[in-house]
Amino acid sequence: MKAGTDIAQIGSLVGDPARANMLAALMGGTALTASELALEAGVTSPTASTHLAKLVDGGLVRVKRQGRHRYYALADESVAGMLETIMGVAATLGPKRVLPGPGDKALREARLCYDHLAGEAGVAMLESFVDRGFVRLDRETAALSPAGSRFFADFGIDIEAMSHKRRPVCRICLDWSVRRWHLAGGLGAAILEHMMRAGWVRREKDSRILRFTPAGRREFDLFLHQ
């Protein structure tokens, strides 16, 4: 047997329908209990606990105890990126829906991908940064330019502090609905945090959908073109 990354092991963890539903629920970036994830997966609590133990052992999910409860979350944004890519492949190769549900269009427009902006809005944002020379793309990697560092510092994001953390400042994630890159990493998370704090977008309850307020949409458009 060839040595190297065990793709089959990761595939088996993600490929089970119940575990896939649990992982998809955690794509919203919120930590959930085993009971909540059991409801998402449509399985009993004991079965959910068994699935979660496998996901934790496989390194895809982390668990944190708080009081009497255990909360589960994706291990890190690289897992979210992998899931986003798999969703894109599934959307391309899987069965085609004749009539997409009303939530599909909203998910395509703007949604949470772990802790950053995805969908058409996220892709447009990254493309704007690249066009203005703030972010440089080289194949599948991204880097912040000096002009970008100044721009985001003026926007109120502490790039200097971010650069000393383990998490990359810039990272790109292949958007499953648009099939182009959107911005992840510390910068992507900081921008979305600012947008939510400023009231530009609001998260739809029990969903990854992000909805722009009318004023927020105007501010976002200015942000992309200033």
Results as ranks from 00 to 15, higher is better:
1 M>R: 03
2 K>A: 15
3 A>N: 12
6 D>T: 08
8 A>K: 09
10 I>Y: 08
15 G>P: 07
16 D>Y: 10
21 N>P: 03
25 A>M: 11
27 M>V: 00
28 G>A: 06
34 A>C: 01
38 A>L: 11
39 L>E: 15
44 T>K: 14
45 S>F: 15
49 S>I: 04
49 S>Q: 14
52 L>V: 02
53 A>Y: 04
55 L>V: 14
55 L>M: 14
62 R>K: 13
65 R>A: 15
66 Q>N: 15
74 L>G: 09
75 A>V: 06
77 E>P: 00
78 S>F: 03
80 A>G: 10
81 G>P: 01
86 I>H: 04
87 M>W: 02
87 M>N: 09
88 G>W: 03
90 A>D: 06
96 K>L: 12
97 R>I: 07
100 P>A: 10
100 P>F: 06
103 G>Q: 05
107 L>K: 09
110 A>Q: 02
113 C>M: 08
116 H>A: 11
118 A>E: 11
119 G>D: 13
125 M>W: 14
129 F>T: 01
132 R>A: 12
133 G>V: 09
145 S>D: 05
145 S>P: 01
155 F>R: 09
155 F>M: 12
157 I>Q: 07
158 D>M: 04
158 D>R: 05
164 H>C: 12
166 R>G: 09
168 P>C: 10
170 C>S: 00
170 C>Y: 01
171 R>G: 00
172 I>F: 00
176 W>D: 08
177 S>D: 13
177 S>C: 05
181 W>G: 00
183 L>K: 05
188 G>Q: 15
188 G>C: 07
190 A>Y: 02
191 I>L: 15
192 L>E: 06
192 L>V: 06
193 E>M: 10
196 M>W: 02
199 G>D: 06
202 R>K: 09
205 K>Y: 04
205 K>V: 10
217 R>E: 13
217 R>T: 04
220 F>N: 10
221 D>C: 02
224 L>Y: 06
